[in-house]
């Protein structure tokens, strides 16, 4: 196995008296697809924000490629190769789909038409090229999701963090997304995803980490995790239906 690419060691995040993330450690190796699951309010999004730089850990370390990045703001992490999506997609509404993707591709292509070419390529990748010149405000929910993925891909990241990127998509859209991520993964991109949809988790991820009440309660392959009775009670038992 190769060197851990993303490393989380004893990460803690407290908000006043509330401990949202409690001593979580895990690794993501290059080329892997890892999912984080857990019931609502388990601290997944807080953990995710510690990785993106939206929040800084109260204790513990987050390192990328051996470099501790606890204090780095989101933009510096993006430049280190960390692409992300937002749980609620954040398209740049008055810009066209192409321009949205260009905002990403400008990171590594300073010339206008190079950035455009790269952005266009990313739109093709996510199947939005026919909507390239439509303003993001006119796009449907699933198109906005894909646009966000395109913008993140245009950064040419080495690790993609996806926050419930499948929520609200229909069956075939979910399948399209899974195919897209598999293809990208085949080309060497590492994925860390937060996902509610257990079918997606089973179909897609190599390794699953389960978070409950801020702590990691299990880790293993999708099969191991989804048949683990402890996980099932923690995860499904409190979902009330």
């Amino acid at each position: 196995m190769s060197e851990p690419f993303l490393q989380v060691r004893g990460a803690v995040k407290r908000f006043g008296g509330l401990t949202a993330v409690n001593d979580v450690s895990f690794d993501v190796r290059r080329g892997e697809i890892v999912s984080i699951i857990g019931p609502n309010g388990a601290g997944k999004t807080t953990l995710f924000n510690l990785l993106t730089g939206q929040l800084k850990p109260t204790a513990g370390d987050v390192s990328l490629n051996g470099q501790v990045i606890n204090a780095l703001p989101p933009e510096r992490r993006a430049r280190l190769g960390l692409g992300r999506t937002f749980q609620i997609a954040k398209p740049l509404l008055t810009l066209t789909a192409l321009e949205n993707a260009m905002v990403g591709s400008f990171l590594h292509h300073s010339r206008l038409h190079d950035a455009e070419a790269k952005a266009h390529q990313m739109l093709i990748e996510v199947g939005l090229d026919r909507r390239a010149h439509v303003r993001a405000a006119q796009l449907t929910l699933s198109e906005r999701r894909r646009l966000e993925v395109a913008r993140a891909l245009a950064l040419e990241p080495s690790l993609m963090l996806l926050d419930e990127v499948m929520a609200g998509l229909n069956q075939s859209e979910v399948q399209d997304s899974i195919d897209l991520f598999r293809r990208l993964n085949g080309a060497g991109l590492t994925f860390l995803i937060i996902e509610h949809n257990l079918k997606v988790v089973r179909a897609f991820s190599e390794r699953v980490i389960v978070i409950d009440r801020g702590a990691k309660i299990a880790e293993g392959t999708a099969e191991q995790i989804l048949t683990n009775p402890e996980v099932v009670t923690a995860y499904l038992g409190r979902r009330r239906g």
């Binding site: 703001p73 933009e75 430049r79 992300r84 937002f86 954040k90 740049l92 990171l107 993140a152 950064l155």
Partner: peptide, 10 residues
């Protein structure tokens, strides 16, 4: 348009 999205784009 969106400062958080901008940050995420480096």
């Amino acid at each position: 348009e969106d400062e958080d999205a901008a940050r995420a784009a480096g």
